[in-house]
Amino acid sequence: MKGAGCGCVLLALLAFAAVTPHTALACQADPFALFRDDFSRSNAELGPDGDHLYFADGQLALKPDLNNGWRLPIPRFKLLGASYCAEFKSPTGPADTSAGIMFWMVDAANLFTAMISPDGTFHVSRKKDNTWQTLLTRASPKFKIGPGAVNEIKVITKKLVEVFGAASRYSLSDNSVFAVYLNGQFVTDMDVLAPKDGGFFGLFAESGGSQRSEWRVLNFSATALPLEPSGIYKVSGSVGGSGYEGKVTVDEAGDAYAVVWSINGKSMKGTGVLRGATFAVAYENAGKVELATYAPSGIDWSGKRTNSETGGQVVAETWLRQPR
């Protein structure tokens, strides 16, 4: 465990303040999603077997065996920080069944789930070394009850950063946080020791002992989220062959970020938004509007800025995260 005494809790709160705006979007199709499927077409890669998993009525059907669960890991994509959203239609029949989103899945014996049951109960569980641990069970007033009711589950996972020891650099924390939303309303968040490299994600459903339950999934999406951009950075770049250095601060501002560059005694202010793995910032410089875009590089960012003074040429720039 690195960084005893780190500010993980504070950073977790910071992380989820940024998450809040997403609730308004619900499962609205995110154009920046890494994975999204409305199941209007068959998707052979998901491995439909015609029994436990199949496509019907423009929906995905999950029908586990009696007293069993059925996992649908989405192939090929492994994520640490991400936003997942799915809409589930409850089955007819007994309520001893559940379905939801699976995340941070290392293998069949190690995974997390956020699931709902038709009676309005909500469960967050962890399977560790093949043993299930219930992290939370509660009834949710936001839940729509009964056969055919459609409910939306959203899970957001974030990796934290922390400063440790006397080092002047931030590092990845061993801890991560996840938050769960039901029908657009916050339900819970937890700070846990997540798999270091994240894991696969997907869907999970369970049947009770009296009847095989058929859950329908109307849509499912996953958007990769880089580390939270809020922080202080040492910035460096080059304009016309001349290098420069300075400081950049990024602070949350509603559903966006306030960005301030301080370079050679000059200050530039802008507004940034996080879209998938791209952090885009609009700012003004000498009365002209400019644009910057960055991609994550570990806990840092690298990208480019437009520069009206150099015509259509862009300026390469690197941000190195610093302690606050």
Partner: peptide, 20 residues
């Protein structure tokens, strides 16, 4: 991903799009 910055009414705007 296509991003664009603009100013209107004294306020700065940021637009981000992905191909459809």
């Amino acid at each position: 991903i296509f991003s664009a910055a603009f100013v209107t009414g004294g306020e700065i705007g940021i637009a981000t799009y992905t191909v459809s």
